[in-house]
């Protein structure tokens, strides 16, 4: 039963226009990169220089994918359940003998699989195609680490988007997700700067707002930046002792909250 619903989710999300648009955009970027590198190779650079430029260009490509994969997670997350609610199909689906939380979970996991699939294909198939066409050797090490680091944050991003889409229209939910992502990043970097202990002891309005966003929302941008740092081998401040348990707990809390709210929802 859950497998059938999961396949249904994958079929539904794979038809998403956002996915198609980003897929086409990826191909365009790859084509531009290939053309630039080929032109440089034919006219100016020797093979050694070409490898450096090719590696750098590919790094930027991985970085761009790493950045907008979160955007895709928000876009698909906002439609995962909202589209069923809008069409009225949801009342048909929840009248099957499954608990509502399972329906929610399957929809979230389905979107997660699609987002990860897109991420994987964009990174690795794109990189492989680039390498074959240009002859430039591509290093996938950083991209693989970034992919692994982003696994759970993407689930958290989808969960947040699903939650917001239960209350507001899809486009506004998407905008709010992006806005929240920035707010959380600002709060987190502010708290990191002054230290959590000081933030908690010297309590004022701004700090309490900062702490609210810091503790109750997933730090998707923080994780994304950390993942990006592996692509170019740069330094990024990342408190794994706090971020890992926070992400796990907050993702579970948000999924639990959505399930609770959806259980009470009149359909």
């Amino acid at each position: 039963m859950l497998k059938t619903l999961l396949i249904n989710t994958l079929l539904k999300e794979a038809r998403s226009r956002s996915l198609l648009f980003l897929g086409i955009f990826n191909i365009i970027i790859l084509l531009v990169m290939v053309t630039v590198v080929k032109l440089l190779g034919e006219n100016t650079l020797a093979q050694e220089g070409l490898s450096v430029v090719g590696g750098g260009v590919m790094g930027i490509y991985f970085l761009v994918i790493n950045w907008w994969i979160t955007i895709l997670a928000y876009l698909l997350g906002t439609s995962a359940i909202a589209s069923d609610l809008r069409s009225g199909i949801v009342s048909q689906l929840v009248s099957f003998p499954i608990p509502r939380w399972q329906y929610i979970l399957v929809r979230i996991v389905g979107v997660w699989i699609i987002v990860l699939g897109f991420y994987f294909v964009s990174n690795f198939l794109g990189g492989f195609a680039f390498s074959v066409i240009t002859g430039v050797e591509v290093s996938f090490g950083g991209a693989i680490v970034a992919f692994l680091i982003n696994l759970l944050p993407l689930l958290a991003a989808i969960t947040l988007a699903v939650f917001l889409s239960l209350y507001i229209q899809r486009i506004f939910a998407f905008v709010l997700c992006s806005f929240l992502s920035v707010i959380v990043q600002i709060s987190t970097s502010g708290i990191t700067k002054i230290g959590l202990e000081r933030a908690l002891s010297e309590f004022d309005l701004y700090k309490s707002i900062g702490l609210f966003f810091h503790f109750l929302f997933p730090h998707v941008s923080v994780w994304s930046n950390y993942a990006s740092s592996f692509i170019f081998g740069s330094e990024a401040s990342f408190n794994s002792m706090f971020e890992v348990p926070h992400l796990v707990v907050i993702t579970m809390v948000w999924i639990g909250l959505i399930s609770f709210i959806f259980k009470k929802k009149e359909l």
Binding site: S87, S91, Q92, I98
Partner: peptide, 24 residues
């Protein structure tokens, strides 16, 4: 329901099959 609505990219067979599978 009063108005039967399902994903319009499903075929008639796919729809009946989905419901059948949801009931095991």
């Amino acid at each position: 329901p009063e108005k039967f609505i399902f994903y319009d990219y499903y075929t008639v067979k796919g729809t009946i099959s989905f419901f059948g599978q949801m009931y095991g």
